[in-house]
């Protein structure tokens, strides 16, 4: 219950208009800070529902794959320039952003993560590495504005944000591949 309340408070805080407006005023903060934080808020809130409705999650997300697919689709959608523009222009899409990233991305991520085996987790990491590299390249190299609401320089910054995140994931993958935990733990 405590985690649910923390998650809900975080979600409400992020949705307060001045805060939302401030975070959305910088493209990279919009995508790489606000959106992950909304996912995290959902991640925190999920615990209560997982405890209350374990059979529902067992039935629909037994091996974690359906949940993680939903997570991938939702997050993938929100990496598109068009979706960000829509969120800034249409109030209903903005509401959908908060609802989808918390309920449809944060919830399934929490439930699926421990159900996935290490192969599934690694596939997910590799998928996001490739996605981030491609999207990063797209944002850096596009000669025109991809979002009506943000300048080209912000787009390039976001591109580099994607690339550096991808590099961090690669470092993590190298670390878990080349270090043998059983030697230390």
């Amino acid at each position: 219950m405590q985690q649910f309340i923390y998650g809900l408070l975080l979600l409400i805080a992020l949705a307060i208009p001045p805060i939302a407006h401030f975070m959305e005023s910088v493209m990279i903060i919009h995508m790489h800070m606000q959106m992950p934080m909304v996912v995290f808020a959902g991640f925190l809130m999920a615990r209560l529902f997982m405890d209350r409705f374990p059979r529902f999650f067992d039935k629909w997300n037994g091996n974690g794959v359906p949940g993680i697919l939903l997570f991938v689709i939702i997050v993938g959608f929100w990496t598109l320039p068009r979706s960000m523009d829509d969120a800034l222009t249409e109030q209903s899409v903005e509401v959908f952003k908060f609802v989808s990233l918390s309920l449809l991305a944060g919830f399934p991520l929490r439930d699926s993560w421990k159900r996935l085996n290490s192969l599934g987790k690694n596939i997910l990491f590799i998928f996001f590495t490739i996605l981030f590299l491609v999207v990063g390249w797209l944002y850096i190299d596009a000669p025109v504005q991809l979002c009506n609401n943000y300048l080209v320089i912000e787009q390039i910054t976001l591109g580099w944000g994607f690339l550096t995140t991808a590099i961090c994931i690669v470092i993590y993958l190298i670390y878990i591949t080349f270090t043998d935990r059983t030697k230390y733990e």
Binding site: I28, M33, I153, I156, W160, G161, T164, T165, C168, I171
Partner: peptide
């Protein structure tokens, strides 16, 4: 890795600019 991620996020904005 978390530290590197935080560093990347923080510095990418001013450095790109």
């Amino acid at each position: 890795v978390v530290m590197l991620l935080v560093v990347a996020m923080a510095y990418v904005v001013p450095l790109t600019e």
